[in-house]
């Protein structure tokens, strides 16, 4: 055993290499411990790094483009135009009596934050490889920083939203004040998924290819272009008997089940995809002037918190290897 003690004696210590075992004794093995509260505290102490990295990406993103920051406004408008052209003609989507452009745009705003967070945050550990392997600060900073940039971009998209309100001669309802609460749920949900995905992508690069596919699928599986109310509240599972409906004007009306087990699919969906209730609530409060559905909100919030906790856990679990495999 050789101790290099820079204050100690001046003797030259030569290690007896043969005395070193081939493997470390099992009691010395290192186990990475993560304490939740401690991690949060350290992360908070490093918040300035998150801001600085976000500033870096935000500046770099628009620096070379001739139109600069205008793109943050232009790209969601372009998406909206595609949606309006393609989907406003599809029968059965409905927009609950609100102009479709406005109805869809609220959905697009919520979705684009989530998709951008996941898209850039999921790859953030890879794109910051150089820093990851050479500097020391909490690794969560990278996905969170990407989310912050996505958040800033989304905030800029509120400019065209305001313009849309003016065009259609409407004003957001007073219940819009509830929106921050739902944004919080969305941020928690997005953070959980982003943390998990980013820590998985760095170990399995295949996911980089899979992620966009999942995201484009998610766009249609989430009520962005269709109303949340399309999900049945009373979905029959088993038992009971069916009452046949009456044929009115070529539609069957009044067919339903009596007795047996049925579930409120809106609640189930809302738990697994909190983004659904978030979009639904944003539309209800901003466009329809109704107060949120509290049961649905509670389920979505619960789901989002669980996603966040599990995502954080997964991230911390794999954190040990990041610098070695980056």
């Amino acid at each position: 055993m050789a101790i290099a003690d820079s204050s100690g004696g001046d003797a030259l210590v030569v290690t007896d290499v043969s005395s070193i075992p081939a493997e470390p004794p099992p009691e010395l093995l290192y186990h990475h411990k993560t304490r939740f509260i401690e991690s949060i505290r350290v992360l908070w102490a490093h918040r300035e790094i998150v801001y600085t990295l976000a500033e870096r990406d935000f500046r770099a993103q628009y620096k070379q483009a001739t139109l600069g920051i205008l793109w943050a406004v232009l790209s969601p408008v372009a998406t909206l135009m595609i949606f309006v052209i393609v989907f406003s003609r599809v029968k059965g989507f409905g927009s609950e009596g609100v102009p479709y452009a406005l109805y869809a745009f609220v959905g697009i705003l919520c979705w684009s934050f989530f998709a951008a967070s996941l898209g850039s945050g999921g790859n953030s550990l890879l794109s910051n490889k150089a820093l990851l392997a050479k500097t020391q600060f909490p690794r969560e900073c990278f996905p969170l920083e990407s989310m912050l940039v996505s958040g800033l971009n989304t905030l800029l998209s509120w400019v065209p939203l305001t313009i849309l309100f003016v065009i259609f001669g409407r004003a957001p309802a007073l219940t819009t004040l509830w929106v921050p609460l739902f944004m919080l749920i969305e941020v928690a949900f997005a953070a959980g998924i982003t943390l998990a995905i980013s820590s998985l992508i760095i170990q399995m690069r295949d996911l980089t290819q899979v992620l966009p596919i999942i995201l484009s699928l998610g766009l249609f599986a989430t009520p962005v272009i269709w109303p949340y109310s399309k999900i049945p509240t009373n979905f029959h599972l088993a038992g009971g008997h069916q009452v046949s409906g009456v044929l009115v004007n070529g539609h069957i009306v009044g067919a339903h089940w009596v007795g047996g087990v049925s579930v409120n699919l809106q609640l189930v969906y809302g738990f697994f995809n909190p983004l659904g209730p978030v979009i639904a609530a944003a539309r209800r409060t901003m466009l329809l002037g109704l107060s949120p559905q509290w049961e649905l909100t509670a389920v979505a919030a619960l789901g989002a918190v669980i996603y966040l906790a599990v995502g954080f856990r997964i991230f911390k679990r794999f954190e040990v290897n990041f610098a070695d495999i980056a």
Binding site: A2, I3, A4, D10, A11, L12, V13, V14, T15, V17, I20
Partner: peptide, 11 residues
């Protein structure tokens, strides 16, 4: 492994 440690000059 650490082969030799000690004062810089000698190491």
């Amino acid at each position: 492994v650490v082969q030799v440690s000690g004062p810089t000059k000698e190491v």
